[in-house]
């Protein structure tokens, strides 16, 4: 097997990995402050992709608005819309469940997933609709020296990495981040110091949701946009989160990237196992390091 094939698959794997990283980062940020797992994270990723698709090609046909939201604008518009949906979900529903067992949060967001998925399945083909709005500047391929790689995919990798590490930096190295970490550590005490913890919770949930929406927009030109695109992904991301442990932000990012890479390389060496390799790695981690690679057991 030539080195080129392996490198190519590794890069494609990294491309999947950045989506895992963005989603598991969002899950980890939300889990840190709210102690719930957002099952709807996959549905929000799907929603992001659909907002980009509808904004580009269906606004006139559906709503009679002669406006086209291009790819670059979608990168801003979709996360904002998904974030607003996140605010609504948190304020109207999740907020009332904090006193209860955390599994109710999971069940609620599972119900929301079914609703979102079902709604889009009514209007769009389950096998997927291609997103036509990939910008001209990002079409074609770039010569990386050892291979030609699609420009758009390279852009998606770099862009996602920047977003992930910027998030990490904000949380670990800014005043805002230190307040957030205080809220994670001890919400009651943080509130007593005069910080508005409920608002922080809402905005954190909205931010995590927006991150999922952003990942959806980035994924739209690569994969076809389909109502089921988030559901299949989110279960893998759950396994990523179990492997990484949700104790650290950097852990969530790194395990996402690494597992995408592993999945990509499995495609080269033993293709049938590509869809299950992450789950088997999860089994190994549970056997030998149950708290996860970067995890602290709560």
């Amino acid at each position: 097997m030539s080195m080129q094939v392996i490198l190519a698959q590794a890069l494609l794997g990294l491309n999947v990995g950045v989506f895992y990283a963005m989603l598991s980062l969002g899950l980890a940020v939300i889990f840190g402050l709210l102690n719930i797992i957002n099952f709807a994270h996959g549905a929000m990723y799907m929603l992001g992709a659909f907002i980009a698709l509808i904004g580009y090609s269906l606004l006139e046909q559906w709503f009679g608005i002669s406006l086209q939201i291009g790819f670059w604008a979608s990168l801003l518009v979709a996360p904002v819309i998904v974030g607003i949906l996140g605010v609504l979900i948190e304020r109207l529903m999740l907020k009332r469940l904090y006193e209860l067992d955390h599994i109710y949060g999971l069940l609620l967001t599972f119900g929301i997933t079914l609703i979102l998925q079902g709604l889009f399945a009514n209007y769009f083909n389950v096998s997927g609709t291609p997103y036509p709005g990939q910008p001209e500047a990002l079409s074609g391929v770039v010569n990386l020296g050892f291979m030609y790689f699609p420009t758009y995919r390279l852009f998606a990798i770099v862009f996602s990495l920047v977003v992930c590490f910027a998030t990490w930096w904000v949380i670990e190295h800014t005043k805002l981040g230190s307040r957030l970490r205080a809220g994670v550590e001890n919400p009651d005490l943080t509130q007593a110091f005069g910080l508005n913890v409920p608002l922080m919770v809402t905005l954190t949930f909205a931010f995590g949701a927006g991150l999922a929406g952003l990942a959806g927009v980035l994924a739209a030109p690569i994969y076809s946009v389909s109502p089921l695109m988030g559901a299949d992904l989110i279960i893998v991301v759950f396994a990523v989160v179990v492997i990484g442990g949700m104790g650290s932000i950097m852990g969530a990012i790194l395990s996402g990237l690494a597992l995408g890479l592993v999945e990509g390389l499995t495609k080269v060496f033993y293709p049938p196992a590509a869809s299950t390799v992450i789950f088997f790695l999860m089994v190994l981690v549970l056997l030998f390091r149950p708290a996860g690679l970067f995890g602290k057991e709560k």
Binding site: Y104, G111, L114, I115, G118, A121, N122
Partner: peptide, 17 residues
């Protein structure tokens, strides 16, 4: 068709809430 999913999801949300 897919409305079943929407309805089941809604029942889910109502039950939990």
């Amino acid at each position: 068709g897919s409305w079943v999913q929407v309805i089941l999801g809604t029942i889910f949300v109502v039950c939990v809430m």
